[in-house]
Amino acid sequence: MSFSDATAAVSDELAARDDIIVCDGIDKWYGDFQALKGVSANIKEQEVVVVLGPSGSGKSTWIRCINRLEQHQSGRIIVDGVELTNDTRNIEKIRSEVGMVFQQFNLFPHLSVVDNISLAPIWVRKRPRAEAERQARELLERVGIPEQAEKFPGQLSGGQQQRVAIARALAMEPRIMLFDEPTSALDPEMIKEVLDVMKELALGGMTMMVVTHEMGFAREVADRIIFMESGEIVEAGTPEHFFTNPQEDRTKLFLSQIL
């Protein structure tokens, strides 16, 4: 799949915007195993991209490369005009612009919810503590759990924990949010509360890259769907195009298995 194909199928309105993430032919090996094979795609500002694909297809690896939790071996990744290289300052700068939400929440178990959220703003953004804590409470309000502020992560349900994790990422006021299977570790009855928060975020104009298996979410919220398999981008397009009129056989097979 070539570079231009992956970005072609976007609406005119989106196409007019600037690219905020540029991935150009990135390769990633784990030993002999090639997890990403020349992945190229551009993400526009305020675009919501959902990455689909069977497990082991490299979707998580790809978005983890974007804030350099994984290191790519060749190709270029440019985030908000800054290229990811070994320069630590670039990495720190990008990480403070890119929020990330993990499958296993990864909240800090020894800190209260408020401290979880305000830690990075205080120490990375150098905000005064009082202001950071006020902001943390506002964010908790926004994700719908203001009453949990003083609790510890272990005392919350999975859905609540994931919403705290989203609030924690938002506290850094990122321009981009990455979601790595945010609902996969949740009990079914808690998935909706997390998806609702993400939906609201998308409507608010956040640039988002979401790896998920939630087809409903993909259909409803995504501006574009990218389908990956075996470390390659197989097909990309609007949800309408993707779900109703897939072009590639592999995409058709995948859709037939899950729908």
Binding site: N67, L69, E92, R95, S96, V98, G99, M100, F102, Q104, N106, L107, F108, P109, H110, L119, A120, W123, V124, R168, A169, M172
Partner: peptide
């Protein structure tokens, strides 16, 4: 200390010293 704790700290942009002092060592 689980790997996810390191990843979450990194993703927030904490420096190595901050990550060690606030997240890893207390746990």
């Amino acid at each position: 200390v689980r790997r996810g704790q390191y990843e979450a700290s990194d993703a927030l942009g904490l420096t190595t010293v901050q990550r060690t002092g606030f997240i890893v060592l207390p746990q």
